[in-house]
């Protein structure tokens, strides 16, 4: 138990430190990388909670896919850090209000009065044979099947909307359509095979006669 507690404090400290760095780093690329570290250490915390499926999926989805694209975008942006920081004092009051409200909300939900062993009894320990994935899957596809399906449909709609909004055809673009290129056949598209009548016999015999004449002179 002692070692588990030690691990918990190590990962919790890393999570807190990297979350702090996300909002204080000047360089946006560094901030994104600290966010990645925060995700990985919170995944480790979830694994300590025996929620290994959620932990691994957090790494797989957020770290492996979402943050890669994030990093990708941040690297491409030419961000003027001074311009970003210019309005700090002006926006400070509004930001402070939002921060206080958020902190209050978090306190109301997970504050000491609503959390702890007397509110949530310690779950019975499960053996290593217990499969988290199976338990989650059973719940998602039986009890919560409609919320799950609705969430899936909302995501699909969002994907289609995002594609529709960003898809634009510029007439000046010299884009090559790979599908059209793949469809190109040797047949009529690339080369044309032409039927030609064979040449008459007059030409070859004349040159052969010339050759013979040459031979005789030698």
């Amino acid at each position: 138990m002692g070692f588990e507690k030690f691990l918990f404090y190590v990962f919790a400290a890393i999570t807190l430190y990297s979350s702090g760095m996300v909002i204080t780093r000047r360089n946006p690329v560094h901030a994104v990388l600290y966010l990645v570290l925060a995700f990985i250490s919170s995944a480790a915390l979830w694994i300590l909670l025996e929620a290994e499926f959620l932990g691994i999926v957090l790494v797989l989805v957020y770290v492996g896919a979402v943050m890669v694209l994030f990093l990708f975008v941040v690297m491409m942006l030419d961000i003027e850090i001074d311009a970003l920081r210019a309005g700090f004092i002006r926006y400070l009051p509004l930001g402070a209000v939002i921060a206080v409200v958020l902190a209050l909300e978090i306190f109301l939900v997970v504050g000491p009065g609503h959390f702890g062993l007397q509110h949530f009894p310690k779950p019975p320990p499960v053996g290593s044979e217990f499969s988290n994935t199976e338990a989650l899957g059973l719940l998602l596809y039986t009890v919560y099947v409609y919320p799950f399906e609705i969430a899936a449909v909302i995501l699909l709609v969002a994907i289609i909307a995002a594609i529709r909004l960003t898809l634009r055809h510029r007439p000046v673009s010299k884009y090559l359509d790979p599908a059209a290129q793949v469809r190109v056949k040797k047949g009529p598209d690339r080369i044309r095979i032409v039927q030609m009548p064979t040449e008459g016999v007059a030409g070859p015999t004349a040159s052969a006669g010339a050759g013979a004449k040459q031979e005789s002179t030698e």
Partner: peptide, 11 residues
């Protein structure tokens, strides 16, 4: 969740 672990790490 061995397969998931592998997917997560290769990503």
């Amino acid at each position: 969740a061995g397969l998931l672990y592998l997917l997560a790490l290769t990503s």
